[in-house]
Simulated assay, not measured.
Amino acid sequence: MNMKKNKLTVVVIILSVTFLSLIGYSANRGKMSFVENGVGVTINSVQGLFYDSLYKISSSFQFITNVSKVKTQNEELRKSNSKYQSKALEYSASIKENERLRSMFKFSELKDQYNYVGADIIGISGNSFTDGFIISEGEDKGIKKGMIAMTGEGLVGQVTSVGNNWSIVQSLSNKNIAVAALVHRTRDNNGIVKGYTDKNNKPLAEIDRLSLDSGVKKGDVIETSGLGGIYPAGIQIGKVLSVHEDKGEVMKSAIVQPYVDFSKIEEVFIVIPKNPREIKY
């Protein structure tokens, strides 16, 4: 194959030299002969074919080289894009964490008679979050049974079991938890909030024992009243979804959507009184 290419190259060179000689000779005569013109056409055809072949080979080589470069560039872009996506997720998580801490800080400033111990949720106690969950702090941080768990969004529940470096918290959606509560707008403060599950098994809460003349309505905010000395007053619980009258029991009740999504929380703050003698658990 190489020998054929070498022979073709030699032929083209000879024809080119011959053609140049004819051009020089013809230039002095002003007009080509029939033979000279035929030779020129032949040489030009061979040169065109040879150049076209070389151009195609060169273009193919450049294409292969470019494909390799593009592939490398795409791989670098993919890695870079993956890195930026990871950074964006970290940034988003940091923003959300800062928002949670900011909300908690505002509450702690208003309720400075308490200390607040942060704890991560490390497991579920039971079949779901409605049964309770395990947190990463316990007696070694001053946590005791009966203390309150909350986030910056509102009330989570109550500590029901304590170990040296772990505790179990039952959420507000558990029917075993009862919280003295009031309607923020009307200040009706004789309500009790308990866990409630709707027909679709959605975990909610219910406030009952409200008087029939209570002005509670859809959209009202329910919060802890502080009665009983267990739950600090002013912790938001949720928003009223619907109101119901029970004339036989001579009272009103309301279904409440908790502000905290118990299935999505990642950490809680345990409310610890600075003077434990003021609180009876």
Rank of each mutant, 00 (worst) to 15 (best):
V250L: 13
K218M: 07
K239L: 10
I265A: 03
K252D: 08
S242Y: 03
I230Q: 15
A233L: 10
S242A: 08
D261N: 15
Y259L: 15
E267R: 15
K247A: 12
D246Y: 08
D246A: 04
V240F: 06
T224Q: 02
K247F: 12
K252H: 05
L241N: 08
M251G: 12
V268S: 05
S242H: 10
K252Q: 12
P258D: 03
Q257N: 14
L227S: 14
M251D: 08
G228Y: 10
D213F: 13
K274A: 10
L241M: 15
G215N: 12
M251K: 15
G234Q: 04
G226E: 00
Q257D: 15
S263R: 12
K252V: 00
G248A: 09
V250Y: 10
Y231M: 11
I222A: 03
V250P: 01
V271L: 04
T224Y: 04
K218G: 07
V271Y: 00
G228C: 08
V271S: 01
F262G: 11
Q257C: 11
I237F: 06
G248P: 04
S242D: 06
V250D: 14
I265S: 06
V271E: 00
K274Q: 12
Q257T: 06
A233E: 14
Y231K: 02
A254D: 13
I272A: 09
G219N: 07
I270E: 03
G219I: 02
D220C: 05
G226Y: 07
K218H: 06
K264T: 11
V250H: 09
G219P: 00
V216C: 07
V221K: 14
V243K: 07
G234I: 06
V271T: 01
T224A: 05
P273Y: 01
V260R: 00
D220E: 06
I235M: 06
I237L: 06
V250M: 14
K274R: 10
I265M: 05
L241P: 00
L241V: 06
D220L: 05
